[in-house]
Every structure is written in structure tokens, then in C-alpha cells.
Design a binder for these strands. Structure first.
Lengths: 249, 249
DNA sequence: CGTGCTGTTGAGGACGATCAATGACGGTGG
DNA sequence: CCACCGTCATTGATCGTCCTCAACAGCACG
């Protein structure tokens, strides 16, 4: 466990904790002590089903996952993508009402750690900074959902561009490679794969995407113009100092 | 002020407070003492602009309003409708990040009361039940946003049907009259007015809507079938006993 | 009795879905 | 090393939903 704590401080989860305001060694350690089960999940498998969502949540140590629901016809609707360091099922953890709606699915082979609701509750009481961090992360999620409502009725090109911008902003990667398939993008944008492909070709014509098979953004500025993207909503930053998540009883 | 308090207990706001768990006389009174400015707003006017949203919020005493944003082309996107007794700008009050996105607009002549952020903060510290009530109301709002994400990619008929169901559930009215125009529905559903009109005619053919000019649902069961509607997500009910909204200094 | 807003109707067109087939690539096992 | 397979990407053709533009009718208001 000790080497995990060390890895946590430098790894993606550690970076995430830092971004959320958890910097003190004691707080980071407290967090890592909560992580109980570690596991590997195969691509395509469900990481957290709707019934588990309220009882525990999960940290994505490595891999790519998505928060999704199924439409009555079986089509997959992706609400959000998750990358290393993300909390999975956080939304339902904080907002129990929406639990039944969603599940978290692995898009690549994933490595995860799980955290019990009860243990988390107790830890929050002892380390308030943890509660604040969760709260911030949850707010950011809500923020992206609302953004998506707006984006959802723009034409396909802009909608896709916006999605790509968001992924780049979240990945904070130097190269513009986005580790998703066109199928994933289609399910997130709510467009058919065929049409996504045509949009991609258009984006390549515009010099925004590379001509590789993988999804690689070569002109991020141009992309943001197309999308009308402003990353402000993704930053938990200053947004919140007064309100706080606490346990009542 | 005293007669307002009395009116509040029996009026729509009082009912709302009760539903949110504020039943004790002292708590209700504490709430009414916070309501400072009372005002009348003409139809079409902005009740709470994006800049005000963080500093105060508002109680809708009488009338119909909507939470909306403008698209870059000027089109109005309605995120939610508000009826007597609703808190306006609550979402931005609790989630400051999304403030710039929205404004609240009067759809009919409205009568409102406003509440200061600072005063509310102080009151929550003294009357925790107030914080819990706000929190529940905010959760319900988040819940409806996520639902709308799902609904947003269903065909027009079902989308409209769903919207109508939601309004009926919120209005809790005996007759099925919904006090909105086709234009409002169009902006909320993200469809053109023309198409909304055709959907309405279809709904009338199906015996769901009356043939009146106003929007009147005559067969609610049928409507819910069409929409695949389940009102569960609107009920703050049991959903939350452990998490709580507090002021952290 | 206009003026303005809402509702209604028709015609044409655009965007994106669906169906179907093919290509490109990576992995696996012979 | 090659054959085979599954997944993902690509392309063409057709079709449906919904948009846009435009005109008009009904109703409420002053």
C-alpha cells in the first residue's frame, strides 16, 4: 500500500487530487488509505453498474471509460468520457437521484480502485478537504452536462468539434491524440457512425485533424473557433469557496 | 410583512417549502423574513440576469417563467420552466460555475420576491433545515437536466410528449391545462414552431390534446405511454438524508 | 378596427439516418 | 509466414425528419 501512496502522489490520480485542492501529504495519504479493491477491467465491460453506484465509487487509475446509459432501442448514449485520475460514479455518489440512469463502461482495458461510501463518509468528516474536493469535481461534472445541453442542438460539425475540444482540454496532452474511436464519438455526439466519419473527413479537409487513422488534432486553435469552445467551465478553480459538502449526522 | 408570512404558509411558496421539508412554523417564518424586495415583472422581461444570479436568488410568487440561454444566432434555448412557488436562479446560486450561462425570463406577468445571498447564507447557518431544502431543490433541478439530455435525442413526438408530462407533473393540476405557448414548447424542445404545431396536431389526432387553442391534455395516461415518462426523478422525496449543504465559513 | 402575437398550412430543401458493401488494420493460430 | 477473424474506418445510395420561407387566419389588446 505504501508504494501505492507514493505512486498516487505523482501519478494521474495524484495530479487530479492536487488540482482539486488536496495537496497536504496527510490528506493525500488519507485518500489513498480509502482505496480498497484494485482491479483490472476488460474493454467493453461494465465497471460500475447502476446498483453499485450509490454504495461506492471508483477511481480510474489507468485507461479510458465512459458514463453512459442505454436508450430503449439499445443504442448507447455516452454522457461523459473518463480518463486516468477521474472519479467514476461520482455524480451518482453525490446525486443519488440520478443513479438508475447510468453505468460506467470501460472503453479500453482499465485499472481501477474502489472506495466505499461509508469509508468515504467517515474520511470526509475527518478530512474536510476531501469533501470539498469531491464537491468541486461533482460541480464540474454538472457543468459539463449543462454545456452539453446547449451543444446538443448545433449542427454536427460544431458538435463534434466541441466534443473534441473538451477531450483535449481534459486530457491536457501535448500531442493532440484522442484515445477514442469514431464509434465512441458517435455515441457521445448522438450521431450515426457514418455521419461522424463524414464530419471527420471535413475536419481533415479543414486541416484540423491529421489524416491518420487515429483521432489526432493538428490545429487546436482552428478547432476551438469552429466549436465556439471556451474551456472555462471545466476548471473547478476559484468557483467555490463558500459552499461545502458535509455529512449531516 | 406579517400578512405575507400568513399568505406564504398557505400559498404556493408555502406548499413548496413543505414539500422540501420545511414544516415548522419557526423555519417558515425565518424563510419569509429573508424575502426582501417584492416586485412585478412584465412578460418578456428578464427577472434575473446572469450577473445577478450569484448574488441573490428569487422566489416566484405568481406567474410563469423560464430558465434560458441564447444561442449565438439569438435563438432562445429554454432549460426549464418555473411556476408559482419555484426558486429562480437556484441552480446558479448553488452552482456558481454555470451562472454565466443562464437568465430567467418572465413568460407571463410575474410577481416575485428576492433573497440576498448573504442573508440566505446566514439564515442557513441558523436554520439548517433551510440549507437542506435548497439542496434538495437543486438536486431535483440537476436531475431534470440529465433527463433532458436523454430525451433530447428522441423523435419530436416523444420529446414533446415528455416535456408536457413533466409540466403536468410539476403543475399538479387537475385539469390538464399547461399555461405555455407553442413557441415556448418549441424553444424548450429545440424544435421549430412549425414542427411543434404539426406534432400538436398529431397529438390531437391521438386524442391526447384537446382541440382548443390552449394546451390542454385530456388523456394523461396515453401521453405518458408515448413519452415513456416516469415522474420519479422529480420527487426530492427520500433521495437524500446524508449529504447536506453547509456554509464553510 | 387596426396592430401584434399566436397558431395554422403549404412547398421545397438540408441535414443526418439507414442500409449495404468494401477496405484497412491488428491479432491469433496454423 | 500466411490465412483468418474481428473491429474500426470508409464510401455510395436512398430516405425521412425536421427546417426554412412564406402566407394567412384567429384572437386579444388598446
Amino acid at each position: 500500500m505504501q508504494q501505492h501512496a507514493a505512486a498516487g502522489i505523482v501519478g494521474p490520480v495524484g495530479q487530479r487530487l492536487n488540482a482539486l485542492g488536496i495537496t497536504a501529504r496527510a490528506d493525500v495519504d488519507a485518500f489513498w488509505k480509502l482505496v480498497k479493491v484494485r482491479d483490472e477491467i476488460d474493454r467493453g465491460q461494465t465497471i460500475v453498474g447502476s446498483t453499485d453506484l450509490v454504495k461506492r465509487f471508483t477511481v480510474l487509475l489507468e485507461g479510458v471509460a465512459c458514463l453512459s446509459t442505454r436508450h430503449e432501442d439499445g443504442a448507447r448514449q455516452i454522457h461523459a468520457f473518463h480518463y486516468s485520475g477521474d472519479f467514476l460514479g461520482l455524480h451518482s455518489f453525490v446525486f443519488p437521484q440520478s443513479a438508475e440512469l447510468s453505468e460506467v463502461e470501460a472503453l479500453t482495458r482499465c485499472s481501477i480502485g474502489t472506495i466505499d461510501r461509508d469509508a468515504m463518509d467517515r474520511a470526509i468528516q475527518r478530512y474536510p478537504v476531501l469533501g470539498r474536493a469531491l464537491w468541486r469535481a461533482a460541480l464540474t461534472e454538472v457543468s459539463t452536462f449543462r454545456q452539453r445541453l446547449l451543444v446538443s442542438r448545433r449542427p454536427a460539425l460544431q458538435r463534434v468539434a466541441y466534443l473534441l475540444c473538451e477531450q483535449l482540454a481534459r486530457l491536457k496532452t501535448d500531442e493532440g491524440v484522442i484515445p477514442l474511436t469514431q464509434i465512441d464519438i458517435a455515441d457521445a455526439a448522438g450521431l450515426s457512425v457514418v455521419h461522424i466519419n463524414r464530419v471527420f473527413q471535413e475536419l481533415r479537409q479543414l486541416g484540423v485533424l491529421s489524416k491518420q487513422r487515429l483521432i489526432e488534432v493538428v490545429n487546436q486553435e482552428r478547432l476551438q473557433e469552429l466549436a465556439g469552445f471556451d474551456a472555462g467551465y471545466l476548471d473547478p478553480g476559484e468557483s467555490l469557496s463558500r459552499w461545502d459538502l458535509r455529512i449531516d449526522h
